[in-house]
Design a protein around this nucleic acid. Sequence first.
DNA 1: CTTTAGAATTAGAATGATTCTAAATCTGTC
DNA 2: GACAGATTTAGAATCATTCTAATTCTAAAG
Lengths: 149, 149
Amino acid sequence: MPSPTRPASKPTGLECRMAVLGADVRLTPHRREVFDTLAASTDHPTALDIFTRIKDRSPGISLATVYNCLDHLTSAGLIKQVHLERGQSRYCANLQEHVHFHCETCGKVIDAHPAADFDPARFWILPKGTKVTRMDIAIHGTCEACANK
Amino acid sequence: MPSPTRPASKPTGLECRMAVLGADVRLTPHRREVFDTLAASTDHPTALDIFTRIKDRSPGISLATVYNCLDHLTSAGLIKQVHLERGQSRYCANLQEHVHFHCETCGKVIDAHPAADFDPARFWILPKGTKVTRMDIAIHGTCEACANK
DNA sequence: CTTTAGAATTAGAATGATTCTAAATCTGTC
DNA sequence: GACAGATTTAGAATCATTCTAATTCTAAAG
């Protein structure tokens, strides 16, 4: 099973996700691969991380294409861009409502989900007329492993 | 009154803020100027914005120094770094608990304050052992002016 | 099955933000 | 008033990202 052939890649749900969201992007092999790679990652990789992971399977792909695919997938709403620190953007295929816990010691990023009764709209007083499209919540601190180091 | 002499700069509260927070940074003229400039800004300027604003008063200052001062002030907890988009970091001297509303059309950033009964600790389920030091909340959307454009 | 127009992809150059480096200057302490 | 250590400087270096122009692919029309 650890054969070097291209993994049979069960349909990862990109089409399904596109259908659910009514998203409209041309589905090229590269875009699919970028999405699959991200969807298989739990660590909020950077563009370069994704590029590195894909290169084993698709040696021809270029970093510019990875950026390009990530941008298309992001603007179609199929994935999310995450900005936690100065420097690189990270990406995340988890579209459930969640926040990012960022360990300032080891850099690890963990998804955390809201309590059942959380109602974001109710908690911040925004200027009248403001339209909200999305909310990014980052919680910074120390993860258990680092706290016990 | 619009004289070109250095504004008499009423004590802006940097010392006071340092005392309240128990922060320990050597207070150099540049650091004070960076802080004062930021404290006088409501628009969440970038390092380059701050550099430009200061240069009129202190022609000798270098961009590296502005970065340096911003980093020192940030790690002393006297100001906050804000990451809303790919690209430059922004800075903010408002230490009250607040969130940033970011207009995706005009780029404007507005501070919004939480409702009185908001209790952040209660809303997200974090892994056990996690220690939280701070929380960054960004709300993206369209401001009233842009919505009516 | 060909043509064709538009989209996607590429390598590499270019840009923009930030950090680094090494030398010069300043500050507080003895 | 000298010295060690911190701060500041200009400019070079680095890192992440975007741009460019040429090439390749794709889907739809003929």
